[in-house]
Computed example of a mutant assay.
Amino acid sequence: MPGRREPPVPIWRDGGSLWLEHTALTEADLEWLRPVRRLTAWAVQFSPGLLAQLPDLELLDLRGGSGAHIEQVRGCSDLRVLVVNQIRGVTDVSAIASLPRLHLLSLYGLPRVTQLPSAAHLPELTRVELGSMKGLDGLAPLLEAPSLRELLLVRAVRLTDADPTAIRNHPTLERFDWFAEDVPVKTWMPVRETVGKPTVKVMHVGDWLDKHGTR
Rank of each mutant, 00 (worst) to 15 (best):
M1D: 04
G3A: 10
G3P: 04
R4I: 07
R5G: 00
P8G: 08
P8H: 02
P8W: 02
P8T: 03
P10W: 13
I11L: 10
W12S: 01
W12H: 05
R13F: 13
D14R: 13
D14H: 13
G15T: 04
S17A: 15
L20A: 08
E21R: 14
H22L: 08
H22Y: 09
H22Q: 08
T23P: 00
T23K: 00
A28L: 14
E31N: 12
E31I: 11
R34F: 06
P35N: 11
V36N: 11
R37G: 03
R37M: 07
R38Q: 09
L39G: 09
T40I: 12
W42F: 15
V44A: 03
V44H: 00
F46T: 04
F46Q: 07
A52P: 07
Q53L: 10
L54C: 02
L57E: 05
L60N: 04
D61S: 15
D61R: 15
G65Y: 06
G67S: 00
E71V: 14
E71A: 13
E71N: 11
Q72L: 13
V73S: 02
V73P: 01
V73R: 04
G75W: 06
D78S: 01
L79I: 08
R80G: 12
V81N: 09
L82S: 01
V84S: 01
V84H: 07
G89M: 15
T91W: 00
T91C: 05
T91E: 11
T91D: 04
I96C: 04
S98D: 11
H103C: 02
H103E: 14
L105R: 00
L107V: 05
Y108W: 13
Y108T: 09
L110F: 06
P111F: 06
P111R: 04
R112Q: 11
V113H: 09
Q115F: 00
L116F: 03
L116Q: 06
H121F: 10
L122P: 00
E124F: 06
L125W: 00
R127A: 02
L130Q: 05
G131T: 12
K134S: 09
K134I: 12
K134C: 09
K134F: 07
K134V: 12
L136W: 02
L139P: 10
A140V: 15
L143I: 08
E144I: 07
P146C: 08
S147G: 05
S147K: 14
R149K: 02
L152T: 02
L152S: 09
L152Y: 08
L153A: 01
V157A: 12
L159A: 10
L159V: 09
A162K: 00
D163K: 09
T165K: 01
R168N: 14
R168E: 15
N169P: 04
H170Q: 14
P171R: 05
P171A: 02
L173F: 00
E174M: 14
E174D: 03
D177A: 09
F179L: 00
F179R: 00
P184L: 06
V185R: 12
V185S: 14
K186M: 15
K186W: 14
M189Y: 10
M189Q: 13
V191A: 02
R192D: 05
V195C: 08
K197R: 08
K197Q: 01
T199E: 11
K201Q: 14
V202K: 07
H204L: 03
D207V: 13
W208Y: 14
D210W: 10
H212Q: 13
H212C: 10
G213F: 15
G213M: 14
